[in-house]
């Protein structure tokens, strides 16, 4: 792995067992076992995916629903273990895989800043230094002492984006979390990505192709678990849009 490569995905395949996901109680399981019905219905969400991401690269992932985009990001962030293949990550990761991931709903915004910071591996003292900056950027204002369960989805995404970017991660992963922010916040995010995150790599999933064009300089097109094209962002997005139009 060269010095500039921050993520190396090597021949990753992911198999889901469809019948496995249904049984979560003992009775059903025993009945199935007795009937010899523990069948294995497998589904490959990813097939031999390989990619390399260099330091500072901003990569967008496009593809239809079920193409394997989120699965791939989950594997890269270490939440999911691939069935085959390996992933090497070189640097600090800040994944925003879902809205307000790492928040406790009963906790206030203030408390969640420290909790979420700790989830990302940063201590209380480190987070208190960044506290004011996080609150200011997220535009949460007086809501900072309100439990997060009363936040709107836009507020959640603003707060989690502010926390994730304030800790200066080497790699930021955004999975559909910016789509709920309004236009002015999206502009702010873009600015922040250009300024303080210029050295960081970005992995970005969005169904809005214009957002991908806006934030990324490279794009990867996934289809049914395989990479079918990758390259300069506008080129790939043009191809993808042409494909979607002809569906």
């Amino acid at each position: 792995m060269s010095k500039d490569t921050v993520i190396e995905v090597d021949n990753v395949s992911m198999e889901f067992n469809l019948s496995e996901e249904k049984t979560d109680n003992l009775k059903e399981f025993v009945i199935k076992l007795l009937k010899k019905e523990v069948r294995f219905q497998s589904f490959w969400a990813l097939n031999n995916v390989s990619l390399k991401i260099n330091r500072g690269e901003k990569v967008g992932f496009v593809g239809l629903n079920g193409a394997g985009k989120s699965t791939l990001l989950k594997i890269i962030s270490g939440v999911l273990k691939p069935t085959k293949g390996s992933v090497k990550v070189n640097g600090d990761l800040a994944p925003l895989l879902s809205l307000g991931s790492g928040f406790d709903n009963n906790y206030t915004g203030r408390e969640n800043i420290f909790l979420n910071g700790a989830v990302l591996g940063h201590s209380r003292t480190e987070m208190s230094k960044k506290f004011d900056d996080i609150v200011e950027f997220s535009e949460i204002g007086d809501f900072i002492d309100v439990p997060v369960k009363n936040y709107s989805s836009g507020m959640r995404s603003r707060l989690s984006f502010s926390i994730a970017t304030s800790i200066n991660p080497d790699i930021l992963i955004l999975d559909e979390v910016l789509s709920v922010g309004d236009m002015s916040f999206q502009r702010k995010c873009k600015e922040r990505m250009n300024n303080m995150m210029s050295d960081a790599s970005l992995l970005f999933v969005s169904h809005s192709v214009s957002q991908v064009r806006n934030l990324c300089d490279k794009a990867i097109w996934l289809h049914k678990g395989s990479i079918i094209a990758s390259g300069e962002v506008n080129e790939i997005c043009d191809q993808y849009e042409a494909y979607v139009k002809n569906l």
Partner: peptide, 19 residues
């Protein structure tokens, strides 16, 4: 790496219990 997370989680458990 996760020492601070452990102390945050303990703090949270105790706090939430009496909230």
């Amino acid at each position: 790496k996760y020492k601070s997370l452990l102390s945050e989680l303990v703090r949270k458990d105790v706090k939430i219990k009496y909230r």
